[in-house]
Design a protein around this nucleic acid. Structure first.
Lengths: 397, 397
DNA sequence: TGGATAAATTCACGGCGTCAACAAAACCCG
DNA sequence: CGGGTTTTGTTGACGCCGTGAATTTATCCA
């Protein structure tokens, strides 16, 4: 949320403080009282009384029964209303498509994933299948009385600011308006519908997974799939860049051949290249994992090489973006035990500031289908950032 | 200026709108009237009347004589007060040190630069010399009745958030508290004094140089000096990263030797390496420029190689940070005519999104001593961001 | 001289957070 | 068993801020 270069009026101020209070209620491990909200936000108790009343009116927050304290008047605990709102996270990836729904607190409410090989698929047809899945999740959510707050679609490709998918090489899709692709009953019925890059959204899910230990984590998220993408997170915010396609680490140069040809990260650590180097071209990832399990020398060497290349690419990220943690996600999370060593070694060797701020390497914690989760998170973020707007939109419908 | 994760009160709102109005007055090509400020900011004329009155009270803005319009009541033009405020930009670099003073509008008011070879110099001694120069510039500024709004020191090295200079390899300095180094009469008398990286500040100066054509430019600034640094600018804001040392493009890997050794950008395009490759190890840059002028084959080849390496490093920047313009500054600005071609070619060849958003390459426009200029700019930025705070500080002194 | 036009100002109004006072609901101790 | 204590939550006066409409000011033009 960046400060607007626009006049600020009282309603903006109210919106901001409303959002602040809502965030405190959402993020608290235990239910908080009005007095605690006041203490945590820095607002006066009087203001918080008023603000919380409005949040209760909009149905986003609920009061529990008062609980006795060691001393003084009992406090009224405040909790987010679970059933009130559902956020949809959709995804089309190379080997599956699916939809997830989360409530305000980030709890999974409904989900449906279909596995399929979507390489070189027809966008129209895939969109129709996604719409079906979305309709089912939608129905499940509505059945339990939730309002749908919006949706975000994750795609493995470059998406520019007008929601046009420029290219998704592994799907074989090019120059599609991703919003127009989806039928109106998916997009139209939903207040806000957006499209974003899969790696950026997975990084957002990773932020969520780390919230309990760090409110504002900073790291570079690496999404190892068929291709290799990534996203930089600074103080809890995903940094998508000028057009929204930052983090394309797969195309970073990591070396050269004697003939002066350049080697990019994907040429070494992309899934096809990695399997080929491991002596299993065209095989599934599980085969590689099994080979590593049984200490297959060629497989270990291939992953080691990939790790070194990834470390070189990440050293470029560290120098250019100044991050001190690299989070390995996607298939790289499965390969973590073999991969992390060479990555760390290359980073220690190459990064100039590794003496003061060594780049840590860690495994992603966001779990499966991180991009879907992250997609829903962005919807919740939008809602939390402007609760009054939401209640307005709700009352209109 | 990012939105605070803190309660917003009316005084914050006032400060914001005050800042907004001041910015409009500063940035306008022609003096603007209150009515124009209202139109440009989106505030009501009533509010602008009040706000401008306060800006006039603080002495930051002045009214000119009313000028007749084609129709209607004459407008009262508003202009920034030139003599009111002076911002100091200080710099210690490898071959010079100096101080510049700018007024509110960004006009140069006073300046003093001393050339000297500061490689391997003693920090204490250099600080004393800088203090002398600063005292003279200070005196010149005070003589014309300006108040000093603050100062920023530019250093060619990694500076962390607590203003400690971790390392400046080309000065041979390490682990210094840059603020404690300067005598109290330089730092103490000044409201806000900060330290920052030379390339980050030069990038800030570049933003200033481009304001008239683009309010919020985005680019990657390359600072070619003895070493090679840089800074990413997104929508007019310099992005310094987690610790403030982003943009260290000189250490990015651009290839490898057959023996599996890695080649970093500085190994090819750093000033020492470049001069050596041109057959003039240890020479001055002017010699290389002369050789290029006379079409010396070895010099041209060396710069061409450096350009290709720079292009490879910038392709990493483009993929990681998604920028669509690279600005070549420092010595690279002088070499621009020879350098730009190979850089552009490498970028076109390597950047995946060059079809939709080709990375432009341009010469820096910030002029000499860009870091000093940018250092003063950050001081002015702080002042403009909180005009009320400034008037408070002023009334206390 | 009167009308048109646009800048700048004034003022009543409603919204918002603060502050201080107060009410409410427990607990403790004599 | 009842007053004192403590902390929560509410209330109302207050001051500040931007809005919007009405008003004043200043110039040009017919």
């Amino acid at each position: 949320m960046s400060a607007p270069v626009a006049p600020v009026r009282q309603d903006w101020m109210r919106e901001h403080n409303l959002s602040l209070a809502l965030l405190v209620v959402l993020r608290a491990a235990e239910p908080v009282s009005r007095a605690q909200v006041a203490a945590l936000t820095g607002l006066s108790r009087a203001a918080v009384t008023n603000i919380v009343d409005r949040l209760v009116e909009t149905g986003l927050v609920r009061e529990l029964a008062p609980v006795a304290l060691p001393r003084g008047r009992p406090a009224v605990p405040l909790v987010p209303v679970r059933g009130a709102v559902a956020a949809l996270g959709l995804e089309v990836n190379v080997d599956y498509l699916g939809v997830r729904a989360f409530d305000l607190t980030g709890e999974l409410v409904a989900e449906q994933v279909v596995h399929a090989d979507l390489r070189g698929s027809d966008p129209q047809e895939v969109a129709a299948r996604l719409a079906e899945v979305a309709a089912e999740v939608r129905a499940a959510v509505l059945a339990q009385g939730s309002q749908i707050a919006g949706g975000t679609l994750a795609l493995p490709g470059l998406i520019d600011s007008s929601s046009v998918l420029r290219t998704a090489p592994n799907l074989g899709w090019r120059d599609l308006d991703a919003l127009q692709l989806l039928p109106a009953e998916v997009v139209g019925g939903v207040v806000g519908f957006t499209v974003a890059n899969e790696a950026d959204l997975a990084a957002r899910a990773e932020v969520r997974a780390r919230l309990h230990e760090n409110e504002k984590p900073s790291f570079f998220y690496v999404s190892g799939e068929i291709g290799i993408g990534g996203a930089r997170v600074l103080a809890g915010e995903v940094n998508a860049g000028r057009h929204g396609w930052a983090g394309e680490i797969g195309h970073v140069v990591v070396g050269s051949t004697p003939g002066a040809g350049l080697i990019r990260l994907e040429d070494v650590a992309g899934q096809h290249a990695l399997l080929a180097a491991a002596g299993r071209p065209g095989a599934a990832l599980t085969e590689l994992l099994a080979a590593l399990e049984s200490a297959d020398a060629q497989a270990l060497a291939a992953v080691g090489e990939a790790g070194r290349a990834l470390g070189i690419a990440l050293s470029a990220v560290a120098h250019i973006s100044d991050v001190d943690e690299a989070v390995l996600g996607g298939t790289f999370a499965s390969l973590f035990d073999v991969l992390a060593g060479p990555v760390e070694q290359a980073l220690a060797e190459l990064v100039v500031f590794s003496d003061w701020a060594p780049v840590r390497v860690s495994r992603a914690r966001a779990g499966d289908y991180a991009a879907m989760t992250g997609a829903a998170c962005t919807v919740i973020d939008r809602l939390v950032a402007s609760p009054a707007l939401w209640s307005l939109a709700r009352s209109r419908s």
